[in-house]
Design a binder for these strands. Structure first.
Lengths: 160, 160
DNA sequence: TTTTCAAATGATAATGACTATCATCTAGGG
DNA sequence: CCCTAGATGATAGTCATTATCATTTGAAAA
């Protein structure tokens, strides 16, 4: 984790930015919630919880900066809020998501899986791909299991 | 086109909704701009241009309704505005997009291309896929060609 | 035909995420 | 120690979208 912060600091200074206390606090919150998909508001509250003083505007600015540096990806699941997702270190593409339309949970997929599709796109459309966004909407395993259980209970009630 | 409107009318009445003049005007605008990616505001202005009287709120409500019926897909290219994209009739999935990061153009891809990826996801994550969103960000053919031309001109200037 | 009533509409107020502004602060170079 | 550019924070402003509510519409019932 420390080394990760160090490397982000280097990325910042490489572009002429400094790792201020506010930026560091923001980065740490993101690292501590690696698998979540925090909104700017979420990050703001989490930073303040850790007694670090910060303004909402700074959080927005920092997240924008980190997006520019490709440390995070700004993603959008259609709920009207931008969320920020840490990239795998060194990853050239943002990773994929499985969004459950029932419980709202979001699962991450780290494998690429799109190599073949990208080759096809490049060849067919002469489009030079820089990044991609892939999201599946559907029913997660937990909700499927709940359905199965409910169907079973329903059947039992009927038979009594 | 007329038959398409008819079929949408049937879809509406199937769920207890009516095809009001405002809804019909909205649908017609969408059909006439099939390959564009109109925002609610765009649709609103286009409907008014055709002398049909309509309120902005009704446009939003109609687009929401059409999204529910899966006649259109609500898509988001990160510019802070939702855009509405007609589905291919009978298509079970929304189609993909190539968004140019230089000129902002959006190209559509109607082929699915994700069959294999979806099989893998279903098997590995036990996730029941209902729909997907796939967007590639990169440089379109036109912008690539412009770059090549500019590089050439630059080289010629140098050699003079 | 007239009545009735739920659905639909339109004007507009409200919301909420995000951005711009600007006075203040900070840290490193001179 | 001073100076200056970059950074910050409070807050006002913007803009897409949603909620509210009075009014209208249209189809079924009387």
């Amino acid at each position: 984790m420390e080394s990760r912060v160090e490397r982000i600091k280097k990325q910042l200074s490489g572009k002429g930015y400094k790792l201020t206390p506010q930026r560091e606090a923001t980065v740490r919150v993101l690292l501590e919630h690696e698998s979540d998909h925090l909104s700017a508001e979420n990050v703001f509250l989490l930073v303040k919880e850790k007694n670090s003083d910060i303004g909402l505007a700074t959080v927005y600015r920092t997240l924008e900066l980190l997006t520019e540096l490709e440390v995070v990806d700004k993603v959008n699941f259609g709920d009207g809020v931008s969320r920020f997702d840490l990239r795998q270190e060194g990853a050239s593409h943002s990773h994929h998501h499985l969004v459950c339309i029932e419980c709202g949970s979001v699962e991450e997929i780290l494998e690429d899986m799109l190599e073949d599709v990208e080759k096809e796109i490049t060849a067919k459309f002469k489009f030079k791909i820089k990044d991609h966004r892939l999201t599946f909407h559907g029913v997660c395993r937990v909700c499927q299991e709940r359905h199965a259980r409910e169907a079973l209970e329903e059947a039992q009630t009927q038979s009594v």
